[in-house]
Design a protein around this nucleic acid. Structure first.
Lengths: 242, 242
DNA sequence: TAGATTGTTAATCGATTAACAATC
DNA sequence: TAGATTGTTAATCGATTAACAATC
């Protein structure tokens, strides 16, 4: 029926799970490079990246045959191949929308520039913030959003606004032609097909940790309330009121 | 061989993919609650959460049978069941280590308190930062880390230090009995079995976006350099130097 | 050649999804 | 009863992993 099912591996490209790990490998390789290491085995690199070596080799095999049997991988060459695959051999122009605490932290984050991400705009709706100097840039008014995107060739928008403002901002950047959005606002953004949204949610990460922490504390199998009755039962009412 | 393979579904508990989505459902339900909605169908809730309805129903079925056929789910009851499953019916004590731009943003983030996460400590190694008031708390010296964890019952550590300091800080919080760590430092932390680490990496998220953005720009199948030769070839040397 | 390590195969596992019987 | 919607089944898809042939 749908062409999706008939696509070959080559057509589908690199698996998403692999793409998500490539930056991790790249970081480990940079660390090795700084230490002057020229060659690394899959076992060593996997250990530095926190994965097992079979997964690492499988991941790298999607890019091509860049290792040497009996020897390992040449660090510099692998750095180049992964960088190229990820699109890091070119610069990407980023705009940060919302210059609160988090936006400021992002504006000052050194990890962006070093990976080819150039922050070319800081925008906010608050008149008290507009005009401030942050990390060597002047915060501009959100009214200028479309102009900034067009004039500076922004291709990635970072949304760090309050939840209530995020969807409107997103609609505007998408209307301006941006198809990659990194969203820090705690809302699910609606976007048309073809637009990629990645979401970073601090509260969600803590909630996932809490789930596991609770399991540890309670011990295995400990879920005495699992059979709770429907609303109206004594158990439920008592628990909700607690 | 290993008991892992013989465990039943009940023993394994709720799938990780489901656990990661429960906080998203919870947020959507809170929004509905604020709007005064009492009952919701899987179709409506799924749409608000950005997933399809089959996945939502499957996820919720892991918690129990909390819906009513022909009707839907009662919002308040589902909020309670998901909260309980995630361990949010109790408070969790959090310490933030590293009070730079990001640490400050985290300290001031309202989304923590509202979900039962209480920030009970801000610690830093920089004498210039220690003693500062941030979001109503006094930053303490990192030397006090073990005392703070023990005295205030910290069960989740948030690491927002520079990369170079993160592993040492992690070792110390783990030695103090903390088994849940949220790591913002761009390093892979080594921890013993039984310790959960979740990682938030801003640079990695941008790199994943760049990968997809590049694919769009280049169009499908456009990878002219895919056949690059090994180190030493003209193509490679030129590209690395660029 | 002997030792080491990659790249690939194949088995397994877990997640997703459509479809529909159960049931309110 | 008729209409609506859940909870579950089963098929499919994608990710992980151990094992090993290929090969440096």
């Amino acid at each position: 029926m749908t062409p999706r099912q008939n696509r070959t591996r080559a057509e589908r490209g690199i698996p998403e799970a692999t793409v998500a790990r490539l930056p991790v490998y790249l970081r480990a390789l940079h660390t090795l490079q700084d230490r002057g290491v020229a060659t690394v085995s899959s076992e060593e690199l996997a250990s530095a990246a926190g994965v097992n070596s079979a997964k690492l080799r499988k991941d790298l095999s999607h890019l091509g045959s860049y290792g040497t049997r009996g020897v390992g991988y040449e660090v510099e060459y692998l750095v180049y191949q992964i960088s190229r695959e990820l699109g890091l051999t070119q610069d990407w122009v980023v705009a940060i929308i919302g210059v609160g605490n988090l936006g400021r932290a992002l504006a000052g984050y050194g990890g962006f520039a070093s990976r080819g991400f150039r922050v070319a705009g800081l925008l906010d709706a608050d008149e008290a913030i507009v005009g401030q100097q942050i990390s060597g840039m002047t915060v501009e008014h959100i009214d200028r959003l479309e102009d900034v995107i067009a004039e500076r060739g922004v291709s990635i928008a970072v949304i760090a606004t309050p939840a209530g403002a995020a969807q409107k901002v997103c609609d505007r950047v998408v209307a301006s032609g941006v198809t990659s959005v990194l969203n820090f606002a705690p809302v699910v953004l609606a976007v048309p097909d073809g637009v990629d949204v990645r979401k970073v949610d601090l509260s969600i990460e803590l909630q996932i940790l809490a789930f596991h922490e609770q399991r540890k504390a309670g011990g295995p199998g400990e879920h005495p309330l699992a059979g709770d009755g429907p609303p109206g039962t004594a158990q439920y009412v008592e628990a909700v009121q607690a």
